[in-house]
């Protein structure tokens, strides 16, 4: 099934043309890795999917992004962002307790029942492989957790509102290799239930976890194919150069 369909997407921030004529599809229940050097438009692309770019006053776009054949601009923004969760580059817990961090989104969508909130928090912390580490200290500040734990907390928080898609924006850039492995494990497991778009600076990470890989360069989508193919027989010389580490 097609999750996202993107038609001739162009994005500008003021005079800067950040995304140029991008056409692509994202399939359900797969991990799409998005790679490319800095300033290639990866994160901008990601933030278009949940319309987070619109917080920037200079943002303009043309073309269309469709979520399950519905233009994202036609969907109520709160509902869209509930369906499309996001995990940011740095672990960004809210200044609340561990429990309240996970429960925050659920509460904002109207859930008040204590039992149901507790159930949801436990369920999603387990999905994010964090439950065992935090089950006895749920009322502590989320800032007392380590960086890797915080990032898994952010994943649990995203899962709690019941998304269909999860966007990862370089989720491991601030993490050590062991924490990274844990986050990657979580991602591969999550693929069964969710569609994942993973922006990463780490080419090897894309090779490890993604089913398909898209290569962005200077705001253009250079190539999008099965990960195996991108990493063994890329069609474009620039893709080849980037994954071999010739630039980037």
């Amino acid at each position: 099934m097609v999750e996202f369909e993107i038609h001739d997407l162009n994005i500008w921030f003021g005079p800067v043309h950040a995304i140029k004529h991008v056409n692509m599809e994202v399939q359900s229940n797969e991990i799409l890795g998005v790679i490319g050097p800095a300033n290639s438009g990866k994160t901008t692309f990601l933030r278009t999917l949940n319309r987070l770019n619109e917080l920037n006053a200079n943002y303009r776009m043309s073309g269309a992004v469709e979520l399950q054949r519905e233009d994202v601009r036609g969907i109520e923004i709160e509902e869209l962002r509930r369906k499309i969760g996001m995990v940011f580059a740095l672990p960004l817990p809210l200044p609340l307790s561990i429990f309240d961090n996970v429960a925050y989104g659920v509460r904002m969508h109207g859930e008040r029942g204590k039992r149901r909130l507790e159930g949801k928090v436990e369920e999603t912390l387990k999905q994010a492989y964090l439950w065992e580490e935090v089950k006895d200290r749920l009322s502590e500040s989320a800032f007392k957790l380590s960086g890797g734990q915080q990032q898994r907390l952010c994943i649990a928080r995203t899962l709690a509102v019941g998304p269909e898609v999860i966007l990862f924006d370089e989720p491991c850039s601030g993490l050590d290799p062991i924490s990274t492995a844990k986050v990657e494990d979580a991602m591969v497991k999550l693929k069964e239930k969710f569609t994942i778009v993973l922006v990463t600076n780490n080419v090897k990470q894309a090779a490890r976890v993604s089913d398909k890989t898209a290569f962005f360069l200077n705001g253009e989508l250079v190539e999008l194919d099965k990960t195996d193919k991108i990493f063994t027989a890329p069609q474009d010389k620039r893709t080849d150069g980037y994954i071999r580490g010739k630039f980037g």
Partner: peptide
């Protein structure tokens, strides 16, 4: 600013974000 982005990205409305995240802090 990141607190606001996180709150909005979870589907909270702008007012909820102000009321529950910005104002208390």
């Amino acid at each position: 600013y990141s607190f606001r982005e996180v709150s909005l990205s979870l589907g909270a409305s702008k007012w909820q974000t102000i009321r529950h995240i910005v104002l208390p802090n």
